[in-house]
Write a protein that binds this DNA or RNA. Structure first.
Lengths: 97, 97
DNA sequence: AAGCAATTTGGTATTTTTGCCAAATAGAAA
DNA sequence: TTTCTATTTGGCAAAAATACCAAATTGCTT
């Protein structure tokens, strides 16, 4: 495979990988309506807070979410609504056939 | 997290996982225009044919592609064009900011 | 400054994914 | 039937992803 083409698909795959985890999809779903802190998200999902922090970091690195600092909280919100199209399309893919 | 909700995101994540690999994205990109056999795809990408077969199997299991048998070839094609929206959206996500 | 709460980081064990090889299967052609 | 080609399967080793704990950091609030 051509190196340039290969690079293109490597980069795209990175985005899909960032989305390919139930907790991270839940974060996107939750943060689309309401800003949420790390602690709040952690309690909703029921995992270790350090694990949640790392999931948020993965989404942040790909600019899928962004965090706003308020006191010593960080409130996350969805940065790219386009990702919601991913989600609704995913449902169609699952339900068809 | 509510069990039902959890199941929803688990299922969605499965779809994203199926797409989260450069070779599999290349397959989708290639098969959208032209039916291709396992061997043809293998030669384009330059990996072991058994590896390609397994990538195709993952996409097939999620109904993302479908194969038509002709002689002892199997020609694959894109089953759900909706996935292309994923792809073009992914480009936007990458290029923005 | 000291204590406290929210978040991140480092380390590690576990699980999952990936890719190759070798062998098995399927089917066409000789 | 035998041979040849295309594809799949099983097994295994290497790489990547995940989750927890413990410790560090950040920045309020006393």
């Amino acid at each position: 495979m051509n190196k340039v083409i290969e690079m293109e698909f490597l980069e795209k795959a990175e985005i899909f990988k960032a989305l390919a985890h139930p907790t991270r999809l839940f974060i996107i779903h939750t943060v689309k309506d309401k800003k949420m802190s790390v602690k709040e998200l952690t309690e909703l999902v029921g995992i270790d807070i350090s694990t949640m922090s790392k999931h948020l970091d993965i989404l942040k690195k790909h600019k899928i979410i962004e965090g706003d600092k308020f006191k010593n909280f960080i409130y996350y919100r969805l940065a790219i609504p386009c990702v919601l199209d991913f989600m609704s399309c995913a449902i169609k893919v699952i339900n068809k056939k």
